[in-house]
Design a protein around this nucleic acid. Structure first.
Length: 173
DNA sequence: CAGAAGATCGGG
DNA sequence: CCGATCTTCTGC
């Protein structure tokens, strides 16, 4: 029996720490109708604005990015390419815009697929991970090695930012 | 206000 | 390799 991750976890750590540390932790999604998905996180990426040009918060505080300026522990979702809901968790203190993108769990790989699998939509924007009955995280562990690589799909961010090793993957070889 | 591009994926 | 599909941001 696992416990929900404490709310301080998201507020007292930055996105880079959380991205790596979330590998092996359990993502829980209660779909309703008695259906619950529980699966360990296997792939994440850190976005550390506002300097990080790959982070949406580098554009400033807008209706889309405002949740990232809140204290850690909220869900940040956004629609990309007109069809995929990307799942992120806000980290850090208030006015320190940061987020961790969840790119894969044991039962579903790929951020776009994951959003569909978890049946995410606009209503998850700003969901509170500490109290939500729909989505939360529980403590658990992994049994493997974590690889750090450049982030995917952010070539527009420039040499400095696109080369940061802020993508973390559980080595399943 | 129009146009372009996007933290992606699946099909050919 | 390209199209799907629509929100967000940028430039005129």
């Amino acid at each position: 029996m696992s416990e929900r991750i404490s709310k301080n976890y998201f507020q007292e750590n930055d996105a880079i720490f959380v991205a790596e540390n979330l590998i092996g932790k359990t993502l829980v999604r209660n779909l309703g109708n008695g259906k619950i998905i529980r699966s360990k996180i296997t792939e994440t990426e850190a976005y550390l604005g506002p300097e990080d040009l790959a982070c949406h918060a580098s554009k400033g505080k807008t209706s889309r990015t405002s949740i990232m300026f809140e204290k850690g522990g909220f869900v940040y979702v956004y629609l990309i390419y007109g069809m995929y809901w990307m799942l992120n968790f806000v980290t850090g203190k208030e006015n320190e815009p940061q987020a961790v993108l969840i790119r894969g769990i044991e039962s579903c790989s790929g951020p776009g697929r994951l959003g569909k699998y978890l049946q995410l939509d606009k209503s998850f924007y700003g969901e509170d991970l500490n109290h939500s009955e729909r989505i939360w995280l529980e403590d658990s562990f992994h049994d493997g090695k974590i690889l750090a690589t450049p982030r995917i799909g952010i070539d527009y961010a420039g040499e400095i930012w696109k080369n940061k090793l802020w993508r973390f993957v559980l080595d399943q070889s």
